[in-house]
Design a protein around this nucleic acid. Structure first.
Length: 202
DNA sequence: CCGGCGATGGTCT
DNA sequence: GACCATCGCCGGC
């Protein structure tokens, strides 16, 4: 297996968000390998740029809280948080240790473990992983994975090399769900996706 | 099939 | 009360 090295993650969130497109997110469930190709991401708290859309900058004046502590830790770890009373979101920590940096993985193209995903999601195939909470459900991602390392297989979740995505196929735009977030953060084009891909979330 | 809308309901503010 | 969302239901094409 080719685990992405820590040096891949220890860069700006925007760079990592763009380069995660085409990589393979793998979850090991017992003997079952469940995986998908990453097709949509969002950068939060990019290095040295204040980001009021980001938990790490919005909460507690940019200081860590119990919820956001992992974001401030070393790159290459999972930041998993809970929202809307029922959904888990999977992020990867990027940037420098001590700074809040992360990339939200918003959608996958299912690859391995289709039968497992179908049993977990109970939806049509195109609805298996085309949204951040959907892919968390399809890969059984919850708070028990908050803070674990993605740099080896010890915690049954990691990211591998996948398929190459040429620059022409990458689209960018404002992030989803900005709500009352003020400008300029509301419109910052820190969402990345594979153009016209059927598993992108909207 | 697709878009709008209300309900959902834990955690942190 | 807001929140990095989804689902079921309703109307329309």
């Amino acid at each position: 297996m080719q685990f992405l090295p820590q040096s891949f993650y220890a860069r700006s969130a925007r760079k990592v968000a763009e380069e995660l497109l085409g990589k393979r997110l793998v979850r090991l469930l017992g003997a079952d390998r469940v995986s998908g190709i990453i097709v949509e991401t969002e950068a939060y708290c990019d290095a040295d740029v204040p980001d009021l859309a980001c938990h790490g900058d919005r909460a507690n004046n940019g200081r860590p809280t119990a919820r956001t502590a992992v974001m401030f830790g070393p790159a290459g770890h999972a930041y998993v948080y809970f929202t809307y009373g029922m959904h888990w979101m999977f992020n990867v920590v990027t940037g420098n240790d001590g700074e809040a940096n992360a990339v939200l993985v918003r959608a996958l193209e299912p690859d391995e473990g289709l039968e497992t995903m179908r049993a977990l999601r109970r939806r049509s195939d195109k609805e298996l992983t085309n949204g951040p909470a959907k892919l968390a459900q399809a890969l059984v991602i919850d708070k028990t994975l908050n803070g674990v390392s993605l740099l080896d297989s010890n915690d049954s979740i990691w990211i591998e090399e996948g398929i190459h995505i040429s620059r022409e196929r990458i689209a960018t735009g404002p992030r989803i769900g900005m709500g009352q977030t003020p400008e300029p953060w509301f419109s910052m084009p820190w969402r990345y996706w594979i153009r016209d891909h059927p598993f992108v979330s909207r």
